[in-house]
């Protein structure tokens, strides 16, 4: 998965429960609603920052959380359930593929209410179209707040100045200024020359050590 700037919160995702009218085994229609509970490790709460998941044929996504509010004196008051996302659309047209296997992230500013001190999470998935055999969500991850959201794929150059812009690392006792200056300038000239001599377009070699003698294609 690459490097994440932040680890997702540890949690247990319970097996989904399908809601259906009538007997599951005899009923011909498939369930259109699935409920999945997510529990956090014992008595832990998180400030929810972002949820990331991969869709699998869920058309609408509802998120409910149980928040633990702090009462006077630090005693924890009874928890209550709130809906922080209602029927968020994952598939614009439930009968067709669009969005069906896409990745989604939902961050706290999209929520209908505050999502701090969350103790439990309930996901309600809906798929009104009868054409799909199953629907669920996969690779579900909850990221706690207070820190930045995961930054995989965020180009490093946006947050780090390129080497030539970075100020030199200076220490208390400075070496001879002229010497450093001339050395650094020389290095700078060298890097500039290197950059300038980079070929404008790639040479486009496809041989290895001058050879492109091939017998058969590889199946792997």
């Amino acid at each position: 998965m690459g490097t994440m700037a932040l680890e997702p919160a540890p949690c247990t995702i319970k097996s989904p429960v399908a809601l259906q009218v009538g007997d599951m085994r005899t009923e011909l229609g498939r369930p259109g609603v699935i409920v999945t509970d997510v529990v956090l490790p014992h008595s832990q709460v998180i400030d929810l920052q972002e949820i990331i998941f991969k869709n699998y044929y869920t058309a609408f996504f509802t998120l409910r959380v149980q928040r633990r509010s702090l009462a006077d004196g630090g005693n924890e008051s009874p928890s209550k359930w709130v809906t922080c996302l209602r029927n968020y659309c994952l598939m614009p047209n439930p009968h067709t593929e669009e969005g069906s296997q896409d990745y989604f992230s939902l961050s706290r500013h999209q929520m209908l209410c505050d999502v701090d001190r969350v103790a439990a999470i309930r996901l309600i998935l809906r798929q009104p179209s009868p054409v799909w055999l199953h629907f669920t969500i996969e690779e579900l991850q909850f990221f706690p707040g207070g820190l930045k959201s995961p930054q995989k794929g965020f180009p490093a150059w946006l947050s780090h100045p390129s080497p030539q812009e970075r100020p030199a690392n200076l220490h208390e006792d400075l070496p001879d200024a002229d010497k450093v200056s001339s050395e650094v300038q020389q290095m700078w000239v060298l890097t500039e020359m290197l950059q300038a001599s980079q070929p404008a377009s790639r040479i486009g070699r496809f041989d290895v050590d001058g050879s492109y003698d091939l017998n058969l294609l590889s199946y792997t």
């Binding site: 486009g204 496809f206 290895v208 050879s211 492109y212 091939l214 017998n215 294609l217 590889s218």
Partner: peptide
């Protein structure tokens, strides 16, 4: 793109090439 290996270097990743280029 399909992959192949330079003759005599089958399975050696540093000799893996695309075919056609």
């Amino acid at each position: 793109p399909p992959k192949s290996y330079i003759r005599g270097k089958l399975g050696m990743e540093e000799y893996a090439v695309f075919y056609p280029p």
